[in-house]
Design a protein around this nucleic acid. Structure first.
Lengths: 247, 247
DNA sequence: ACCTGAACACCGTTCAAGT
DNA sequence: ACCTGAACACCGTTCAAGT
């Protein structure tokens, strides 16, 4: 499933071939298993050959992020800011969906590459063009944060893996559920109301896309309200803004 | 700065001593430099000695998170839900502030430990006690997400490290600023309005605490509105909720 | 200009042995 | 019951050499 590329010995490496191979290798074996040595092997080359095309592993990761960003699709900020922002966020979410490692890698990068900066700039542009003050646009970009990339602010990462994985018989699972309910009554209450199957607490049976859009729209609505009310940071804090002339 | 602990040879290891040493070692040298071997050395012990007290490195990390959670301080949900949630989030933020590695570690854990689950349960409890339906409480927990721990959904991680670090003369920095403005005009516009010093774009001069509370209050206000309007997920999406009888 | 080989200073973890 | 030593199968990266 992973050694199908480059049986032919002489194809000449270049930066793009290295980056593309790294992306699909990470897709296949996971980011934690992606090593310079493993990637070199995949490309039929000695580990040190890679260092002619990327300075080090950090730069490899930066390059991989660039490859992903290129797939997000262009800015179409001609429309109103709100649907424009919404559309672009969801398109990023779509582009990153098949690269589960991308989130972790993007968040680990400290020095922003041009690709990252211009992606962020497109959001700043949508807000400013939409009539936001630079002040509000600034805070709103922070509030959006990683959601700009379509990241959920994950909490319930692996739906299946709550407490110990229960491989045992069904009655053991049921016993665990009772224990959970005893120890974490409120989570259990929430789970009971929304569980599509009763196997785990929160996380199982959640519609990720729904949860993402729920939070996104909550934020966008908040942005809209502050914009309408001509909020400025002089007052401090969204809820302490004095409404000016809403609707 | 880092080899001051345990010169005395025979103090007998135990799980707590291992975990506490791991936490302060991570504080000192960073999480990526924390290895089983390094930790063993810090404790004046051979690497394999640790494996009597933690099964492996994963369990070490889980234990370190438990140590941090223990510092968050108790749930005081007797008050109204909104200030109670707000207070607990900010108290988590405070507790985690001096352990910059904690965020990454918490997010990397897939199997939730009892300590993590009961922390989450305390939030579920505040919403339910505050009169939220299990349905709304569920989505609201997701929307809160990592902010429950006081995490910002970071984007501008390292304030100083935008593009290449400019060690050169001031005129080189100025030239870089102009380049930035040319390539990323919207970011530059925002930066110009809020820059306390003009050195970098967004990130520099931001008051992290302000940005955090801005987004938090935006969400809490949204939660309050949906609660007031008796929102249910049947309708789908906060902005598409039909207001029922607000105020 | 690009790739190779050998080496260095690290990892986490197993297994068999010591006290 | 707890700790040790040696070993295995890995890392990223440097340096000097090959074509």
């Amino acid at each position: 499933m992973t050694a199908e590329r480059e049986a032919s010995p002489r194809v000449r490496l270049n930066r793009d071939r290295v980056l593309l191979a790294a992306v699909s290798l990470a897709d296949a074996i996971g980011i934690e298993a992606l090593s310079m040595r493993r990637l070199a092997q995949e490309l039929g080359v000695v580990p040190m050959a890679l260092y002619k095309h990327v300075a080090n592993k950090e730069e490899l990761l930066d390059g991989m992020v660039e490859v992903i960003i290129a797939k997000i699709g262009p800015d179409e900020s001609d429309a109103e800011w709100k649907p424009a922002v919404r559309r672009r966020v969801l398109s990023a979410r779509h582009a990153l969906a098949r690269h589960p490692w991308a989130r972790r890698v993007i968040e680990s990068r400290t020095t922003q590459t041009p690709a990252v900066l211009s992606y962020m700039d497109s959001f700043a542009g949508m807000f400013l063009t939409g009539g936001f003050s630079a002040d509000l646009a600034h805070h709103v970009m922070h509030a959006l944060g990683g959601r700009m990339w379509g990241f959920t602010q994950e909490l319930f990462v692996d739906p299946a893996a709550t407490a110990e994985p229960v491989a045992g018989p069904p009655e053991a699972r049921a016993a665990l559920m009772e224990q959970m309910a005893a120890h974490y009554p409120h989570i259990a209450a929430i789970a009971a109301s929304s569980a599509h199957d009763g196997a785990t607490v929160v996380g199982q049976g959640c519609d990720d896309q729904f949860e993402f859009e729920f939070a996104l729209d909550l934020l966008l609505d908040g942005f809209e309200r502050l914009h309408r009310e001509q909020w400025t940071s002089g007052i401090s804090g969204p809820s302490r803004a004095t409404p000016v002339a809403a609707d």
